[in-house]
Every structure is written in structure tokens, then in C-alpha cells.
Simulated scan of single mutants.
Amino acid sequence: MSLGYSSFGDWRAWDGYRHTIEHSVYVRADQRGKGIGKALMLALIDRAKELGKHVMVAGIEAKNTASIQLHEKLGFEHAGLLKQVGTKFDAWLDLAFLQLTLDSRKVPDSTENK
């Protein structure tokens, strides 16, 4: 039985967004608070850097303070809030966006500072 999983994929399908990814992390409810989420996140960040990605985007349900705090500790910054874009259990959900810049490139396809 899995303790959790993580993945990332293209932020948008168009070429102009090829350097940006969005990730997803899930930790089984009875395993939360044990560092599994952080370990999964660090592995994702390392892999994204290896692939030359520039920005990692997180879309987190706005009331999920534990996930938001974890992302902040890893250097993610708040980038916006979309109100009532999701739904669960007959209620509207707001989506907080956070982002992490993975490298310091000034030019998108440059190999400097990767």
C-alpha cells in the first residue's frame, strides 16, 4: 500500500509555457505530518531542475493551510487566488496558487545558471 505519490506535468500545452510545470502531491491521511510530503516535494523539485524547468506552480485548496505552509517553507511564493473554481462536498472551493522559481536564467533557453 502506497504512503503517497507525487508528479508534475506541463503547466499549459503551448510551447511558450514549456519551462513551467504544475505539480501534485498526495500523502495518505494516516501518514500526514511525518515528512513524506516534504520528501516527495524535494524529489520533484530536484527532478524538475534536472530537466531544466524554470518555474513550478502549485494549485492548493485555499483552506489547506498545512500544504500551503509546507510549500512556503520550501520557498514557494503566493501568486494568486481563484475564488470558487472548485467544488467538493456541495461547497465552492478557492484555489491558491503558489510558485517556485527553480533557476536564475535570464534567457529562457540559455544553459547558464541552470
Score class of each variant (00 low, 15 high):
Phe76Pro: 12
Thr20Asp: 12
Lys34Pro: 02
Arg105Glu: 04
Glu61Cys: 03
Ser67Pro: 00
Thr20Gln: 11
Tyr5Gly: 14
Leu100Met: 04
Thr65Tyr: 08
Ala96Cys: 14
Lys114Trp: 08
Gln99Pro: 09
Met41Phe: 02
Ala39Glu: 10
Ala48Trp: 03
Ala29Met: 03
Pro108Tyr: 01
Lys34Phe: 03
Lys53Gly: 00
Val55Arg: 15
His54Phe: 03
Ser24Ile: 02
Ala79Arg: 09
Leu81Asp: 04
Val57Pro: 09
Leu93Cys: 12
Ile60Trp: 03
Gly33Val: 02
Leu40Met: 09
Val25Pro: 01
Leu82Gln: 15
Glu22Val: 13
Trp11Asn: 11
Phe89Asn: 12
Leu42Lys: 10
Ala29Asp: 14
Ile21Phe: 03
Asn113Phe: 10
Thr101Gly: 08
Gly9Cys: 07
Asp30Tyr: 02
Ile68Gly: 12
Gln84His: 15
Phe89Arg: 10
Leu95Val: 15
Gln84Arg: 15
Ala96Pro: 02
Asn64Glu: 13
Glu61Pro: 01
Gly52Cys: 01
Gly75Ser: 11
Leu81Gln: 13
Leu93Ser: 13
Ala43Met: 08
Leu102Phe: 11
Glu77Thr: 10
Tyr5Lys: 04
Lys63Thr: 15
Met56Tyr: 07
Arg18Ala: 08
Val107Lys: 13
Asn113His: 15
Lys88Asp: 06
Asp46Ser: 07
Arg12Thr: 04
Ala39Lys: 11
Ser104Phe: 04
